[in-house]
Design a protein around this nucleic acid. Structure first.
Lengths: 196, 196, 196, 196
DNA sequence: GATGAATGAGGGTTCATTCAT
DNA sequence: TATGAATGAACCCTCATTCAT
């Protein structure tokens, strides 16, 4: 369609920031166009619709996320190391796609009802299976506590990581790896002092 | 104003559910009215505006939340017991005001810009101070690890608890106290097996 | 219908004041009810509709106006004295029915299109004929200048008098008769000093 | 803002006619759009709101009115000639801005309460001062009768002139100058035959 | 590639009116 | 007589989208 993929990319980055800042519904096409220095109608030369912008933002993010995850998973690490690597990779993705992550957090629940966002459900299911498997392996191999409710632990780790997108600001003192290390320390060993 | 607070309460509960389910912006007044079995215009007999419904939902929730928190804080427990009590109280509030909590999570960021939602900022600041103080006391009294970034730990605990509102369903197997116990176990002692 | 004509009268006086103050369209039934110390719906015990209040206000005023005019006309005065008496009577009506006059001025143009306000057209035509006749008699009898455009003079006198309702306040220093005298002096003899 | 002032002007002229014909409150945006051959929403490409249309209509009119008045006042004529020139200029404005004048007459009283229409009050005060000064000068210079109530005379002249907008139709036999001459004749010398 | 102008569906809100109590 | 609650039509306005230029 559009002969300039670079321009698309620029415009999508702008749109993602506005979506993340104001919410998808509250974002008007005009606001995106303003931020891009053009008129609302002009965006339709590049994109079919507002929704297709959202779609492209999320699918691009998820593709890259899974690239990173797959690299980790193919390394066939032990469960604890896998968990550490996945969390670290997640914070790197938050660093690179902060707006997309924030949008995903806020909007995905509403979007899964629509057929064109089927891939969100797919991704989410694969995500859940990946984490549950890792946790179960960890329990089986006696590196994670066996008295935990696995599903609760899954949600605990998942939410803990991704909600960070709502306050994380790139270039704000902490590198993604630094934050990952701190989070892992809390998730793995807790915040209480060992009493033994 | 309106001399029937019960009807207001009913309608607000309905509105809160729809807001939580679909998002504030995506919720039309007609949808609320449909859910209440009346016409859109009829809502305006009870409320000034869609926004004032939102406001009443959130302020009612925050009032009750702080009632609970204040009871805890006035007990002058040690830092670890305070943290346990606050987390448990939080899950109880999620149980009681699930929709309001979900709305708060999703919308508060956008709302604080408006003067009428100033109290959200006030509450959030008091909330932050309460938690930071508790964590700092814990570190000073050697019940919490002293190698932690306190602000990160604060966000960790905060998010960990409140995001639960996005998946928690009342009457779904786990009581609030049960969930609190599991969460506290993970937050305080981690998910890893003790290696000593 | 309503068993208490006095209450009707009170309510109509209140309604007339609000109509005059804010304009008929801008006046909500609720504003009238507020001013009367009751709820909007309660007015419908006394009146069929908002429009019927308007109708009763205007028809009551016109009835009294024509009572006054007819008394003057039946006296069979000379044209100048007739004009003086009609103008004086008009200012008395403004004094007594200020709100009704103000409403009439502002709304009658829109209302004449409706069948139920046919009597406004009738009254207006009779009004015009009365004044034109008086002016023509005056010209014929050489008490009014014969170089005037009679229709322009009619509008001149008519507007001059009735617009006063927009600023006249009863009990404000000038009695109706006093104002009438001043106006008549200007209308009859002009504001310029006689140069002869 | 909008780069096509001509289209704005056309639309404002249409809106002014509908406002004048039906009253501001009774005029729906849809009626204006119908008269302009477009849909209601399309008007908002050109204007912020219905009220901003009204504002632009009135401010444009008042600007032109004061241009004309200032030209007269800068000529430093005698009081009688000033009055004649102001009245003549007024009828010319009625001829050019009939709808705006009619709107002004009907709506200005309600509008002055709003901050954005502050300039109406300003204009009205300057208007009053201009006329009062002219009348006072005339009395001082013995060209206007000294037994008149100046404020009454002011209202008399003011209303007499401007109410003409409610019946004046451009191209209807009388030119503005012709009407001005007749009105001035009546205002200055009265309608009665000189008895001396 | 972008603009200017318009569309049309729908959203929040108002308000005259009704009616059981 | 009046209230409380609701109706339903209409209103102002927003916004994603289209399209000729």
């Amino acid at each position: 369609m559009s002969p300039s993929p670079e321009r698309r990319g620029e415009l999508l980055a702008i749109a993602a920031d506005v979506f993340a800042e104001q919410g998808y519904n509250a974002t008007t096409v005009r606001k995106i166009a303003d931020a891009a220095g053009m008129l609302a109608g002009s965006l339709y030369y590049h994109f079919d619709s507002k929704e297709s912008m959202l779609e492209e933002i999320l699918s691009t993010f998820l593709t890259e996320l899974w690239d990173g995850y797959d690299t980790v998973l193919q390394s066939r690490l032990g469960p604890r190391e896998t968990l550490e690597a996945l969390v670290t990779e997640s914070f790197r993705e938050i660093d690179r796609h902060r707006s997309a992550v924030a949008i995903y957090q806020k909007e995905s629940r509403h979007l899964v009802a629509q057929a064109r966002f089927q891939y969100l459900t797919d991704s989410q299911q694969r995500f859940e299976k990946t984490w549950l498997t890792t946790l179960e392996r960890g329990v089986a191999e006696h590196v994670f506590r066996e008295d935990l409710d696995i599903r609760l632990a899954y949600r605990f780790v998942r939410d803990t990581v991704w909600v960070a997108a709502s306050w994380y600001r790139p270039g704000g003192g902490h590198s993604p790896e630094e934050i990952a290390r701190q989070y892992l320390s809390m998730v793995l060993d807790g915040i209480a002092v060992r009493t033994t």
